[in-house]
Design a protein around this nucleic acid. Sequence first.
DNA 1: GACTATTCTTAGCCTGTGCTAATATCCAGC
DNA 2: GCTGGATATTAGCACAGGCTAAGAATAGTC
Lengths: 151, 151
Amino acid sequence: MSARVARGRKPASRRSDEQSAHSHQRTRSDHASELAEDYVELIDDLIAETGEARAVDLARRLGVTQVTVTKTIERLKRDGLATSEPYRSIFLTPKGSKLAVEVRERHKTVLEFLRSLGVPAKDAELDAEGIEHHISPATLAAMRRHLRANA
Amino acid sequence: MSARVARGRKPASRRSDEQSAHSHQRTRSDHASELAEDYVELIDDLIAETGEARAVDLARRLGVTQVTVTKTIERLKRDGLATSEPYRSIFLTPKGSKLAVEVRERHKTVLEFLRSLGVPAKDAELDAEGIEHHISPATLAAMRRHLRANA
DNA sequence: GACTATTCTTAGCCTGTGCTAATATCCAGC
DNA sequence: GCTGGATATTAGCACAGGCTAAGAATAGTC
Ligand SMILES: [Mn+2]
Ligand SMILES: [Mn+2]
Ligand SMILES: [Mn+2]
Ligand SMILES: [Mn+2]
């Protein structure tokens, strides 16, 4: 059948194996930062829109319970992205604010790009929320080029 | 400052909150199926390339340990996507095979699409591995249109 | 057919991200 | 200034998906 079975030889660790492993590792790493990115973006939005970011509002926009939000905020605090006092609303550190700006910018670009491809608004919004976290600088630049070219 | 603070009025659950929550829910749901998709695609690849899919090969291509692979295969079996006997290699059920074909096709489209945008091969491969799981049928169709138009 | 290197399994651990139930605090309206 | 409803916290649970260490089974080589 196959070369493998015919020879009884295992192909050791090949170049393409490492390439493939690297892609999956990048995806896992993207997912590790994903929640933090969405939270800081949302906290920044809420402060801009309503003057403050409260757990109950975050929960409503994320579709999770308040308890889940509170626990996640604890991780954000641990990672130096947010601050909060008991029973008070949530704030971003400078590091968190900076991340929020970058993330919002990238999110907007991805959304506009999908729209420019002719994807219906509803689908574009759903897809962008997930896609945004897997966009390398190279791909972001390519999307911007495409938007400029089709302006 | 804000309307919220000035009025002391909470804006209840607004339409846009639900829209936003829906996007995040879709992303979480994508992630729940993501690992299964990558596994069946990889198992199918390995069977085609080498005649069989073994845990050690999956581990190498995914960049995780064999133990992690074995545990994940258990979940795939539970979900009716794969089968395996102790100390034997891994097979796909008809359901798993069907999924593998769809996933590979979508993966290829995303990769070609990114390449067609001018993204360098290396970056395109890294990004496609994550992006592929967040592509709605509408976006997939748009990518195909774009590829056909720029053929 | 025995030996050894590879592979697979089992047990046990950890973190992240979700949940419910129960309790505590806060604040708006009276 | 009380108080009821909204909000936040705490405790405890579950599952996914990662890991290491130790031992068992398999298979290629002599
Ligand atoms: Mn976002
Ligand atoms: Mn997102
Ligand atoms: Mn993938
Ligand atoms: Mn993702």
